[in-house]
Each structure stands twice: as structure tokens, then as C-alpha cells.
């Protein structure tokens, strides 16, 4: 019996590690990364993964081994011990250092992505002059571009639903807002997530480094239609971006005007 149970416990680390090793081949791993900070986030994930994997293997194998080895079939009594002060110190101190190391290793990237003081300041788009306002509402995304004057809330604002177009290799800052309940802006390829909070305007920045079309996902439960609250993130070269903006503008002023915008 103990063979079976020890084997079952041993299969946990073996299959557990194996699925992680194979995951990439099964397309069960990170989607491609296209943002400037995404690589760092993946790196931090991997750093933790290696430390976690080490602990996982050591503890799980020890568990399986003890269950196998210290069976009741052995003659005599068990070892009569109430613990070891020295061991306690060791296995308190080492994990403590490792955990603090993990925590400190995160801080720079976190600050880079989320601290407003670190937002791009010199580029075309800043916290004060965002590329657009992204409005979430049940169950769609609407982008409002500031138009030629670069200022939101003026008559030349352009509105467009579903698709958010941004230029490649540019620091982009946008304002995230919600009209009704909480939603969340999530683009897996950017490694970026930020909740849209009704009553608040939250600035968000990223820099997409590869042209393409990516899914914009709502990641916070927002009602029955949450599953279909999809949008599209389109990253274009600067030239294509300018052209597309001109199209959007033409379209908006031809059929948007009489809707009383």
C-alpha cells in the first residue's frame, strides 16, 4: 500500500513540473509579448517560478519519501523528538531572505508601470495630454480621441467604439474611465491590466513594440455580458496611424455629426 501512496505523492512534483516544462509546446504559456515592460514581467514570473519550483520539488519529494520510508512496518518506536531549534532558525531565516529578495526584485518594474511619477513626460502623449480617453460600459469599449487640438472635451473630439488604434514604438498614455460598473482593461500581449473605476479617471501608459491586432479583454466581472465585452487593440506604424486617424475623423464627421455629437 505504501508503494502506491508514496508514488501518488511523488507524481505530484513529477507531473507538476512536467506540465510546466511542456506547457509552451502545448501553447499553454504566455502569449507573445509586445510591450516594452512585458519582458520584465515575464522575467519576474520566471524568477519566482524557479524559486518556487525548487521549494516545490524539495518539499514534495521529501513528503513522498518520508511516507515511503518511515512506515509502521519498521520495528521499534518512532524517533522521540519535539523539534530542533537550529533547524527552525534555518528554515525561518532562509525563506525569509528569499521572500524579501522576491519582494524587492518586483519594486522597480511595478513602479515603472504604475507610478504616475514615472509616466512618460517628454513624448507626444503625457498624463495631461493623453492620446485618448477609453470609456468602458456594459458591454463595450469606446475610444474618444481629442482631435486636432489635442484636448479632450472639445467639439472636435472623435469617438469610435470597439477599436483602439495606437502608434507603434511610442509611449502612449490614455485615460481609462467607466460609465457604469467596474470593468478592467486587459491586453494579454501587453501584460497590462487596469480596472476602470466609475467616478475616476485613471491614466495608463504602455509602449507597444510590434504592429498588429490584439484582443482587448475585459477582465473584471461587469454583468451578464462580461464574456463578450471584447475590444480590439490595433498597433500601427506612425504613417498608418496618421492615415487611420484621418479616416476615423472623416467617418466621424460625415455620419457622427447629425447624431448631435
Amino acid at each position: 500500500m505504501r508503494y502506491l501512496f508514496a508514488l501518488m505523492l511523488l507524481l505530484v512534483p513529477i507531473l507538476g513540473v512536467w506540465t510546466f516544462v511542456e506547457a509552451d509546446r502545448w501553447q499553454l504559456w504566455f502569449p507573445q509579448n509586445v510591450s516594452s515592460f512585458g519582458g520584465e514581467i515575464d522575467g519576474l514570473f520566471n524568477l519566482i517560478m524557479y524559486m518556487v519550483a525548487f521549494t516545490f520539488i524539495v518539499t514534495e519529494v521529501a513528503l513522498a519519501w518520508f511516507v515511503f520510508k518511515y512506515s509502521a512496518n519498521r520495528p521499534g518506536k518512532g524517533v522521540f523528538t519535539h523539534g530542533s531549534h537550529k533547524l527552525e532558525m534555518i528554515w525561518t531565516a532562509i525563506p525569509a531572505v528569499a521572500l524579501l529578495f522576491i519582494a524587492f526584485a518586483q519594486m522597480e518594474t511595478w513602479a515603472k508601470v504604475k507610478f504616475e511619477s514615472n509616466f512618460p513626460k517628454d513624448g507626444k502623449y503625457t498624463k495631461e495630454k493623453p492620446i485618448a480617453e477609453l470609456w468602458a460600459s456594459q458591454f463595450d469599449w469606446r475610444v474618444r480621441y481629442p482631435g486636432d487640438d489635442g484636448t479632450l472635451g472639445t467639439v472636435d473630439d472623435l469617438e469610435r467604439s470597439y477599436e483602439f488604434v495606437v502608434p507603434v514604438n511610442t509611449d502612449v498614455v490614455f485615460h481609462l474611465r467607466s460609465r457604469d460598473v467596474i470593468h478592467s482593461f486587459f491586453v494579454p500581449e501587453f501584460r497590462l491590466k487596469q480596472d476602470a473605476l466609475p467616478g475616476h479617471t485613471i491614466p495608463v501608459w504602455f509602449r507597444a513594440e510590434k504592429e498588429g491586432i490584439y484582443d482587448l479583454v475585459c477582465a473584471e466581472l461587469c454583468g451578464w455580458g462580461h464574456y463578450k465585452m471584447s475590444g480590439r487593440m490595433t498597433v500601427l506604424s506612425q504613417a498608418d496611424y496618421d492615415k487611420r486617424m484621418a479616416d476615423i475623423k472623416a467617418e466621424w464627421f460625415s455620419n457622427g455629426k447629425e447624431q448631435g455629437q
Partner: peptide, 17 residues
């Protein structure tokens, strides 16, 4: 152990929810 990933703020940006 999986809690540690999620405790790491930058990683949690991606894996939250």
C-alpha cells in the same frame, strides 16, 4: 507557492483575475 506569484505586484498585473 502560487500565492507568491500573485503577491508579486508586477506579475499580478498580468495574472490577476
Amino acid at each position: 507557492l502560487s500565492g507568491i506569484w500573485m503577491a508579486a505586484t508586477p506579475v499580478d498585473i498580468y495574472i490577476h483575475d
